[in-house]
Simulated assay, not measured.
Amino acid sequence: MIPVTEKRKANVQAIKDIVRMNQVWEQEKGEQEAAELHYYHIVDALHRKWQTIGVNVSDAIEVFERGYNDAWTRIIEPAPWNPNLTTNDLIHLLKISPEAVQIRHAMQIILNTVERRNAFIRRIINVNEQAIQRLLYLMKDEYLRYEQLSNEAFMAMYVMNPVEALSVYFLESVDVHMYWEWCDAGGTGEQAIQYKHEDPHMTLIQAIERVEEEMYAGT
């Protein structure tokens, strides 16, 4: 089998355990034992159980690293629910490098509840940087459309900590400088609610521009 290089791996998920199971096909008389193809069960770092195939452990790992395949490599037991799963836990389990700052920040902002973090583990299949980014932004889109923070919860948070409130509401990184820019433009919590109802995908920068346009139009 052709070796799988790091760049070609569809699945870079760490393996915690691997066990050889039954033969895939009955061995024909006269075939060498080394050529036997077996099923292998793999438990990955997310505690999901996979089934794959190989003639030996190394071969099975290579097949696993090529990623999900409905015929040979698939998840047979999902990860158990983890009520204590933190963002840092998830970053560690997924082996996200310190250099992947954008992914780390996105995970902290988008997966901001234990329910969302567990949902991410349930939905991710192959673990690699591209797959992680793709799923993160798919889930962000869904949350903005269908699970927006309620008006009441947002306003209560806005009174206590407006920077955090805007970050959670827009699901993007917001610092104090961006908040000041929002305030200087005349932005309020009520306007944020109005804009997000009109366009759930509006970014805070776009909202600031909208406030400025309305202010200039009124002068």
Rank of each mutant, 00 (worst) to 15 (best):
H92F: 10
V43E: 10
M1G: 11
W180Q: 14
T203H: 06
W25L: 01
G67Q: 06
Q102L: 13
E99Y: 12
P200C: 01
L37M: 07
P80E: 03
N161T: 04
L135Q: 06
C183I: 15
R20N: 07
R48P: 00
V101F: 11
A45G: 09
L90W: 00
V114D: 01
Q23Y: 08
R74N: 12
E181H: 15
W81H: 10
I208R: 05
A100N: 13
E213P: 00
H47D: 08
E115V: 12
E33R: 13
D17H: 14
N56A: 09
Q194Y: 13
M1H: 12
T73A: 07
V163N: 06
D89A: 05
E99F: 09
G186H: 01
M202D: 05
R123C: 01
T113P: 01
A192S: 09
N118G: 00
I121S: 00
L136D: 02
E142Q: 09
R8L: 15
A14H: 14
K9M: 13
D175A: 08
L135P: 08
N161K: 10
L204A: 06
D44Y: 00
I76Y: 11
V211R: 07
S58G: 12
G30I: 04
W50Y: 05
Y68N: 10
Q23F: 05
Y195H: 08
I75F: 03
V12W: 11
V4N: 04
I103N: 08
Q32T: 09
C183W: 13
T203C: 03
H201Y: 08
H105R: 14
Q23E: 10
V176I: 14
E36R: 15
I121V: 12
V211L: 02
V163F: 03
W72V: 10
Q27K: 15
E147H: 11
N56L: 11
G30V: 04
P162D: 06
E65W: 14
M139E: 04
E214V: 04
M1Q: 12
M139T: 02
D89E: 09
W182N: 06
P200K: 07
K49V: 07
V159F: 10
E65M: 15
A35P: 06
T5N: 15
S167T: 07
A165W: 03
N126L: 05
R74E: 09
A79N: 01
Q130P: 00
D199I: 01
E6Y: 15
A131F: 07
V127G: 00
M160L: 11
R48F: 01
M215H: 05
V176F: 12
L93T: 04
Y68M: 10
W72M: 11
E28M: 06
A14T: 06
A100T: 01
E77T: 15
V174G: 03
R20W: 05
E77W: 10
I110S: 04
Q23T: 12
Q32N: 12
N82W: 02
N84L: 08
I110A: 03
I91S: 00
N84K: 13
G218V: 11
M21G: 09
L85S: 02
E33S: 12
L111P: 02
S173E: 15
I193N: 02
V101W: 10
N82F: 03
M1E: 09
S173N: 15
H47I: 01
V211C: 02
Y179C: 05
E147A: 08
N69Q: 14
C183H: 14
L46P: 03
A131Y: 09
V114M: 01
W25A: 02
